[in-house]
Every structure is written in structure tokens, then in C-alpha cells.
């Protein structure tokens, strides 16, 4: 592993549709066709009913920040220029929570309960990370007004 590079997501047979969706700028979630609910993290069976019929569907991309942190420690050489930077958990409208990061807002303005919407960060030709941006009452790109 190249320790100077930012780590990439590990794509597995279980989560491949998620990362392929991100490349197409669509946030997709696994749904159980038996009990009809979305879940995360991706898995070959439904954690509620153990059903095996898993369907991938586009999610709304909207959610709410349930918690967040601001990293100050230079753990990764590749993130040194980003310090300090945030990471957050977002509860999607469909229910599951996703670990991600927030853009379009200063770290000191982030609060639990912030309503956000997914956008997509194309790191290179292969990997796209979903990140989330505040959404205001006026529309998807909202009135957050913060540089970040």
C-alpha cells in the first residue's frame, strides 16, 4: 500500500453496487425485497429478516447529520494539507446511517440535526466518494452560505 496516498474504499461483492452508483452520481442503497426496508452496511442478507433477495435502489440523497467530528491529528500524511477536516454520520431519509464528510459549511458551523443532501466527489476515474452539503428550505443546494 502507498502510505502517501489517501486510502480508497475497499470494494467487495457486497458493496460494489454502492460504489458503482457513486461513480454514476447516484446514491444507491440495498433494500430487502422480503421486508421492504433499506439497510447499511451492505450485506448479502437482510439484517432484519435474513432474506436473501437484495435489491439496489436509488435513495433520495437527503439526510440529517447525527454526529460529526473534526480531525486535528495528522494521522494520515495524505490528509495533512486538509487539517483540520470533518467527518460525519448522516442518517438518510430511508433510515440507515452513512459515514461521510460534509462540504459547503465551515467545521465550526456544523451541528447535529443539520439537514444535508448528497453530492459526489470524483477523486479520479475510478473512485467517487459521496459527501453531503447543507440543504436549505429553498432547494437542494440551499442557503448554507458557508465557504468550506
Amino acid at each position: 500500500m502507498d502510505v502517501t496516498a489517501k486510502p480508497k474504499p475497499r470494494v467487495t461483492p457486497d458493496n460494489r453496487p454502492f460504489w458503482e452508483g457513486c461513480r454514476e452520481h447516484v446514491l444507491k442503497l440495498p433494500w430487502c425485497a422480503e421486508c421492504g426496508r433499506a439497510f447499511l452496511p451492505p450485506a448479502p442478507v437482510c439484517p432484519r429478516c435474513f432474506g436473501e433477495r437484495i435489491e439496489w435502489r436509488a435513495a433520495s440523497g437527503r439526510g440529517t447529520v447525527t454526529t460529526f467530528v473534526v480531525v486535528h491529528q495528522p494521522w494520515f500524511p495524505a490528509f495533512a494539507d486538509d487539517l483540520p477536516y470533518n467527518a460525519a454520520q448522516v442518517e438518510l431519509e430511508e433510515g440507515p446511517r452513512l459515514t461521510t464528510s460534509l462540504v459547503g459549511i465551515a467545521d465550526e458551523d456544523i451541528v447535529v440535526g443539520l439537514e444535508v443532501e448528497a453530492e459526489f466527489d470524483d477523486l479520479d476515474g475510478e473512485t467517487t466518494l459521496p459527501r453531503f452539503r447543507p440543504r436549505g428550505p429553498g432547494g437542494p443546494r440551499g442557503s448554507s452560505g458557508h465557504a468550506g
Binding site: K6, Q89, T127
Partner: peptide, 14 residues
């Protein structure tokens, strides 16, 4: 895959 057991998620620097 899916991060570490303390919610580590290295692609986001966590």
C-alpha cells in the same frame, strides 16, 4: 471493508 470497528473510515480520513 466498511471501515474499522470503531467507525474508522480511512477514505474520509477517519
Amino acid at each position: 471493508e466498511e471501515g474499522g470497528t470503531h467507525a474508522e473510515n480511512p477514505p474520509y480520513g477517519l
